[in-house]
Structure formats: structure tokens, C-alpha cells
Computed example of a mutant assay.
Amino acid sequence: MPITVVAYDPDWPSRFGRERAVLEEALAPWLIGGVHHVGSTAVPGLAAKPIIDIVAGVRDLAGAAPAIGVLAEHGYVHAPHRPRAYWFYRTATRSAEHTHHLHLTEPGSDLWRERLAFRDALRGDPALRQEYQALKLSLAESHDVVDGYTADKRDFVARVLASAGVTLAPRPATAVINTLDPGDPR
């Protein structure tokens, strides 16, 4: 599937807001720390793959396992991912294209800190946002698969996180990394 990066859509925050309301209700028994819009669609003015990336905090990841079934009722498909996160995607009706990516993780986990810090750094620095957009557009043209596109963003992501005081954790050797998750900078 080609990597498609499109101009910023001012409807992305509204799409997230509608989804947040659904997720807050569905995840209420496990939720702590909120439901957050992350990734490029959460950064005003930034071109992005048109997928709403979401991270939701849960009290205890193992204790939130029943949420997998609850989320399936809302069209989310669970796929293996990092040891300290559950990852889901949702597709458009009659399409294989992803519309939403959702991570459940404990607040304070590496994924939690990385995603929120990266989003906030891009929101707060127009020059950094432009640099990232140029990188994404260039990589989308030069890569046919998401793995290479994601891998080639890693140095930029690590630099931005380091400037925010967050170290991009190395991939755990035993982790199951889901190649369907193009938002994962690892």
C-alpha cells in the first residue's frame, strides 16, 4: 500500500473529538490519564497520513485485556505490538485503509511519554514542524512500504525527543513490533 501524506485537514481534531467521546465511554472501567490525540494529525498545519492516532491511559495493562473485546464491538482490530501496550486499528467501511490507530498503555510508559512529548514539541515549534513535514513528504516519495518510511524518521524523532528531555527507548529485543503501525517511530 503506498504511503500517502496529505495536507493538514482542519476536520482532524473534530474526528478525534468524536472518537474520544466513544472511547471514554467504552474504556471507562480501565481508563486513567485520559484519551489523547497524538501523531501528525494532532499537530495543526502539519501534513500527515490521514489516520487519527490516539493514545489512551489504562490503570493496568494486563487488567485492561477485556477492553480488547469491548473495542472490537466498536470496529477496532487488535494486533500484537510492544510488550507494554495494546495496539488497535480501525478501517473505513468497505475499505482496508486505516482511519484510526489506538494504543492502550499505562501513563508514564515509554510509548506514553514519547508520543505526547513529540506531539507537544511539534505543536510548539513552527520551524521544527516544517522540517518534519519536509522529511515526511520526501520519505513518502522515496518509500513504497511503511517500514522504511518509519525507520528513516527515527533519527529525527530521537533528536526532537532528546531536546524535550525524553530518550527514545530502543526496541526491546523481545518486542513484537506491528508493521501495520506506521505511526510507531521505532
Rank of each mutant, 00 (worst) to 15 (best):
S14C: 02
T174N: 10
Y132N: 12
A72S: 07
R113W: 03
T105P: 02
L139G: 15
P80S: 11
L116D: 06
H37A: 03
E19P: 08
P107M: 06
V38W: 04
R20L: 01
R94V: 12
V146C: 13
P182V: 09
P50W: 08
H101I: 00
R154M: 13
P80I: 10
V146R: 14
A7K: 12
F118E: 12
L111W: 01
R15E: 13
P50Q: 10
S142Q: 15
P185Q: 08
P44I: 01
R18G: 11
L161F: 09
T179D: 12
A47N: 07
A56G: 12
P172A: 09
T4K: 03
W87I: 04
I68T: 08
A127E: 07
K49N: 03
A28W: 07
H103P: 00
R59K: 15
P172F: 04
F16H: 09
T150E: 03
S138K: 15
V43Q: 01
D155K: 11
L27Q: 09
S163H: 12
P83G: 14
G39P: 01
Q130K: 04
R186A: 12
R84V: 06
V5P: 03
G75M: 08
A7F: 04
R15C: 03
D155G: 12
L135G: 12
L46W: 00
P83E: 15
A26D: 10
G69E: 01
T41H: 04
H143A: 15
A79T: 13
H36R: 04
L46R: 02
V5F: 05
G183P: 05
G34W: 08
R171S: 11
R123T: 01
V55Y: 00
D110H: 11
F88W: 00
L139R: 15
D110E: 10
V176C: 05
G69L: 00
H37I: 00
S163K: 14
S109D: 01
D147L: 11
T174R: 06
L116P: 10
R94Y: 13
P80H: 08
A173V: 05
I3E: 13
V43K: 02
A134Y: 06
S138M: 15
R119S: 06
A7T: 09
G183V: 01
K136T: 11
G33N: 12
I177Y: 02
T93F: 05
E131K: 12
L111H: 02
A92D: 06
A28R: 14
V43A: 01
L116G: 09
I32D: 14
R59W: 11
A96Y: 09
P66I: 07
L168F: 14
T105N: 02
Y8K: 07
V77E: 15
P80R: 11
A85I: 03
E97K: 04
G63S: 14
V157L: 02
P172N: 08
R154H: 13
G34N: 07
H98I: 11
A67S: 10
R186F: 09
